[in-house]
Amino acid sequence: MAIEDRNIVLHVNDVHKTFGGLHALADIDLAVEEGKTHAIIGPNGAGKSTLLNVIVGRLAPTKGAVVFDGDVLTGKKPYEINQMGVARVFQTPEIFPELSVLHNVMAPAFAKRDGAFKLNMWQLLRGEKDVQDEAEHILEDVGLIARRDDHAGSLSRGDKRRMELAMCLIQHPRLLLLDEPTAGMSRHDTNTTIELLQKIKQRGMTKVIIEHDMHVVFSLADKISVLAGGRIISEGAPDEVRNDPKVQVAYLGGAEE
């Protein structure tokens, strides 16, 4: 491990999280390698979303710390964490429903270019050709260019997810966090989303993906951590994890099947 350390983008160090008497997370150690897709799987209530919320600063860990690229994320505000290069896709797409699809994608681009705040009242949006061109380019990538002037609220759920992904991609994040990116999607939408994520993978973006759907996980992940009862019970390449008897008991061969 020591040799690989310089390639580790995200370190979750001995994180514990308790809610009252409930141990939601215990002894969590994660190391996410640069350019890799790291999946976190586990049955319902295993603590996956809690872990993601601790990483992005929405929840403060009871103990331990999250380190991104040498900086401690713990205690930072969401916008500060984003400015450091961490973008997030939510379980339920978080978008700007009243804005056009194009503006949805342009807003995060301004955050990337201008920082967390810029008093740019006198510039005109239509003068921002570079940002608009890039947004259009990314909308082409995700297959939404034809809807660029529609209100984002009118998109289907699958399209909203793709747009949210575009909102993250335009920032060229160093780390992309995906919380159940295919939850509640039809098979068709799931497959197009997987294709899209595979396309991103080729660009070498580091991703942490939380997922329920095994089909999605095994088609994308380089490494899988299995969470059950707030602990990591297994970790490794997809094939190792698939064959781990502990995992089969806790998850794959459990009551759910």
Binding site: V56, K77, P78, Y79, N82, A87, R88, F90, E94, I95, F96, P97, E98, L99, H103, M106, A107, P108, F110, A111, D114, K118, L119, N120, M121, W122, Q123, L124, L125, E128, M167, Q171
Partner: peptide, 20 residues
């Protein structure tokens, strides 16, 4: 302006803007 667009985005979904 971009400023105006961000104000509209605040009205639409402030949480998303935080995470953006």
């Amino acid at each position: 302006s971009p400023f105006g667009m961000i104000l509209r985005a605040i009205k639409s979904n402030r949480t998303r803007l935080d995470y953006a």
